[in-house]
């Protein structure tokens, strides 16, 4: 747990957003694979709810708790189109999602920057 909660949350969201970007690029790369169903990561609210319940580890051999968001949580829900080959990836939908990720990431880094500036102002 970091001393300043905001940085911890923003780091967590940045991690979640990059996982989502990975899921989206997997979907787009497989846009012509027969039978492929698009995947997504579980929503960020659920990640936030799960925090604080991880397993504590004191040795390398210990089990790690559920660290980070799980990918492939939602299988092809609400896809726009299914092609005759059974592929359910819609390029438009995936690009919109990629744009959403981009916007959220910009907001995230913007907040971190502003908060950091604020801290520096009080330190100087």
């Amino acid at each position: 747990m970091s001393q300043i909660h905001l940085f911890a949350v923003s780091a967590q969201q940045a991690q979640w957003l990059s996982m989502r970007q990975t899921a989206i690029s997997g979907n787009i790369a497989n846009a012509n694979t027969p039978g492929y169903k698009p995947v997504d990561v579980e929503p960020f609210e659920r990640i936030l709810d799960n925090t604080g319940l991880g397993l504590e580890t004191s040795a390398a051999s210990h089990l790690h708790g559920a660290g980070g968001p799980r990918q492939t949580a939602r299988k092809g829900e609400g896809s726009w189109q299914v092609s005759p080959s059974g592929n359910a990836v819609s390029l438009e939908q995936e690009l919109i999602k990629a744009d959403e990720v981009n916007r959220a990431y910009a907001l995230n880094t913007g907040i971190v920057k502003a908060f950091h500036r604020m801290l520096m102002m009080s330190v100087k």
Binding site: S25, I28, A31, V101
Partner: peptide, 17 residues
């Protein structure tokens, strides 16, 4: 071509991140 462009877009977006 279209799929290639979509993949290129993803590379661009990831670079932006």
């Amino acid at each position: 071509n279209r799929s290639y462009e979509a993949n290129l877009q993803i590379i661009k977006r990831t670079r932006e991140l």
